[in-house]
């Protein structure tokens, strides 16, 4: 697999952070899309997948922060739990993408995504329960919040991300994960 230079990883991370600010604004124009599509998660997951865990982690922390500063969304009180959640997505997707190697780009992608989405939700739930809400947050509320209202978001992200990754590969903007598989097919 071709590697990406650190400078390029840094700039890609910057762009993903900027997208964390931009996408929720763009989805604003579509009726109640923000809560269903979770548009901020997409660049964070992608950043982890492409640039690795340290960059994914930074993207997850900085994306919601800049969005809050520049657009007022999320409001500052929601910021810490959201930043922890996004940081977990970026970090876990970066770690998984390094170790999961099934020789099939899309199988890898789905495994990394599902792993990152589940562990991100668990970590965020724990962080919320332990730190941010100091006992006022119950297990039931966490489960409802993340798995029931967030389920459409999970499904949609599983539809979207592989297509976006494939578009980026076709445009020659990110290296193919398994070049030999591509040339065979």
């Amino acid at each position: 697999m071709q590697t990406i230079s650190t400078v390029k990883k840094a700039i890609l991370t910057a762009v993903c952070i900027a997208l964390c600010v931009v996408l929720p604004q763009a989805f604003h124009a579509i009726p109640n899309a923000g809560s269903i599509y979770l548009p901020m998660h997409i660049p964070v997951l992608l950043c982890g997948l492409i640039c690795g865990w340290p960059f994914g982690l930074l993207c997850g922390l900085a994306g919601p922060l800049l969005s809050s500063l520049f657009t007022g969304m999320p409001p500052a009180a929601y910021l810490p739990p959201m930043a922890v959640e996004c940081a977990a997505y970026g970090c876990v997707s970066g770690i998984l993408t390094r170790f999961v190697r099934t020789k099939n780009t899309y199988a890898d992608l789905y495994i990394c995504l599902i792993g990152a989405m589940l562990s991100g939700r668990v970590i965020a739930g724990l962080a919320r329960a332990l730190i941010f809400a100091g006992g006022s947050y119950s297990m039931a509320a966490w489960a409802t919040g993340y798995f029931v209202t967030g389920l459409p978001g999970i499904v949609i992200q599983l539809v979207l991300l592989p297509v976006i990754v494939s578009a980026l590969m076709r445009a020659g903007l990110i290296p193919a994960r398994y070049p030999e598989v591509r040339s065979d097919g």
């Binding site: 762009v15 980026l168 445009a171």
Partner: peptide, 8 residues
């Protein structure tokens, strides 16, 4: 994403 990555 394509446009943003192109700029990057």
């Amino acid at each position: 994403f394509v446009a943003a990555f192109q700029r990057a």
